[in-house]
Design a protein around this nucleic acid. Structure first.
Length: 207
DNA sequence: TGCCAGGCCCTCTTTAGGGCCTT
């Protein structure tokens, strides 16, 4: 069975910093499940990392130490989230960042997942090479995607990343007259040299 | 107290350096 790029879980973490290897932890997870191009389920939870977060992270995310003091533990939330992921493939904006935190948090509770990651940022760099930059907010505004909620909160960012992802799939489908795109094609597209993008997609997507 | 990462990608490249993205 070829997995479809339009049936995935799109996720976003807010964290205490940039590197789980340096001891940083997740403080919020937001995710949407897309099936056949439609959002069918949402998941959102704060999680208590067991320590205070910096003033920078409080102002960057709007998540406060007070909010986290009342939140369930990372262990509890990540266990539920592993169930939400199920066997779906995963998408995130700058996926290498979210993958590191997903792997680190699931390893702590001895949990695993089967799906593979694709990166909306790497795909966007190929589809919109002339965009001013490839930050999530810029790409959302460029594509006139509805902004629902605050940037830098997990569920809002996951929802907007999901809409960006669907918008990129629609752009490819329109240009190459394809009906669906295998997940593996999006993974390979993210690593295709910019000059070869049209040749690659034209060769692999037959109408 | 102070400081911290990593993968991708471009170029004045490959015996390297630095910007972009994510928090």
């Amino acid at each position: 069975m070829t997995r479809n790029a339009a049936s995935v879980v799109v996720l976003d973490f807010e964290t205490t910093g940039l590197s789980p290897d340096q001891g940083d932890r997740a403080i919020e997870i937001g995710a949407v499940r897309i099936e056949e191009g439609r959002v069918t389920e949402r998941f959102q939870s704060l999680m208590n990392p067991g320590r205070r977060i910096s003033g920078f992270i409080e102002s960057y995310t709007g998540i406060t130490n007070k909010m986290l003091a009342r939140a369930p533990s990372c262990k509890e939330v990540m266990h539920d989230f592993a169930g939400f992921i199920g066997g779906y493939d995963l998408v995130a904006h700058n996926a290498s960042f979210d993958k590191r935190f997903l792997d680190a948090e699931l390893q702590r509770i001895r949990c695993d997942y089967r799906g593979e990651f694709a990166c909306s940022m790497l795909v966007a760099r190929r589809l919109y090479p002339d965009a001013p930059n490839h930050k999530l907010e810029t790409l959302v505004r460029l594509n006139r995607i509805e902004v629902n909620g605050d940037f830098h909160r997990a569920l809002s960012d996951a929802e907007m990343t999901a809409n960006l992802w669907l918008s990129m799939l629609a752009k490819i489908n329109k240009q190459f007259r394809s009906r669906s795109i295998p997940f593996g094609v999006m993974q390979k597209l993210a690593k295709t040299p910019k000059a070869s993008v049209e040749t690659y997609l034209g060769g692999v997507l037959k109408p």
